[in-house]
């Protein structure tokens, strides 16, 4: 039995597309490995100064010995706590106020200028004031992160609510929705896709902020590890800190994408 020419052609085309897809996946995995290999090569051959750019294998070795001594996990633990606590402290009020502002235009008009005026100030520039008000303890770091996460989330939440198609508000009104229903059944789910993009952005900013905040006023954490290692010229330890931040950023992004797919199944 022989297949028609047309079918054979389509099969070939399908296989070609499959190969292309696999090739693209390979590229995605290959690029970080390629970068590390180039780095390793340059460092080992002395083309770049190995004192400033130790080879990745040496950094991984340092990472393992730091992990074995347990020192690393206390830094990771304390940074994770600050990131998560600060993240929640920023995201929850931002979503609540953002929904209210999106639904009730007088609130939006009242709060918008305040947000516009405060947003450009980097929370890190406020760190001295935050330290004065909240002391040098954990609270000040958590507040710093909360402050920098707050703005992208609230702005996206308001935009998310405002951009909900008017017809859904009409439907809700026509079917007798109460204010609570408007809030929970229309504004919250309807704004979620845009809101989650703000949360993604907030997550990235939280990581930037924690490192800088720990460099300036802390005695533990990944930022502290990076800063003290640098000052003691322990550059391998410093690179371990940098790689951890990069890894965290990647994992948080994946986590939030997963959450997004869970809470916005209808997109």
């Amino acid at each position: 039995m022989s297949e028609s020419k047309a079918i054979q052609l389509e099969k070939q085309e399908w296989r070609r597309q499959r190969r292309q897809e696999r090739w693209k996946q390979l590229l995605t995995i290959a690029s970080p490995i390629f970068l590390l290999l180039v780095w390793e090569f340059l460092s080992r051959t002395g083309l770049v100064d190995a004192r400033f750019f130790p080879p990745p294998t040496a950094i991984i070795g340092t990472f393992l010995s730091m992990a074995a001594s347990g020192e690393l996990f206390s830094h990771i633990g304390i940074s994770l706590f600050r990131i998560i606590a600060g993240f929640l402290l920023g995201v929850i009020p931002a979503i609540s106020l953002g929904l209210l502002m999106g639904l009730y235009s007088p609130l939006r008009h009242f709060f918008s200028p305040l947000i516009m005026a405060l947003m450009p100030i980097p929370t890190l520039a406020l760190l001295p004031i935050i330290l004065i008000v909240f002391g040098v303890g954990e609270t000040s770091k958590v507040v710093t992160i909360a402050g920098s996460v707050f703005f992208p989330v609230i702005i996206n939440t308001v935009a998310g609510v405002v951009n909900i198609d008017r017809i859904y508000l009409d439907v809700a009104r026509n079917y007798g929705a109460s204010s609570k229903d408007f809030f929970l059944k229309i504004a919250l789910p309807g704004s979620l896709p845009v809101m989650m993009e703000g949360v993604q952005m907030g997550q990235a900013i939280a990581l930037l902020t924690i490192v800088a905040a720990e460099m300036m006023g802390a005695n533990a954490g990944i930022g502290y590890l990076i800063w003290t290692s640098y000052k003691a010229f322990l550059l391998k330890e410093m690179f371990v800190g940098l790689m951890l931040i990069s890894l965290f950023g990647y994992l948080f992004s994946l986590l939030l994408k997963g959450i997004q797919a869970k809470v916005v199944p209808w997109k």
Binding site: V171, N174, I186
Partner: peptide, 17 residues
């Protein structure tokens, strides 16, 4: 009973429900 209910034009079905 409610007084009236409306059948809207095509986009009236709420996408997140």
């Amino acid at each position: 009973s409610p007084l009236q209910s409306m059948v809207f034009q095509e986009q009236g079905v709420i996408p997140w429900l």
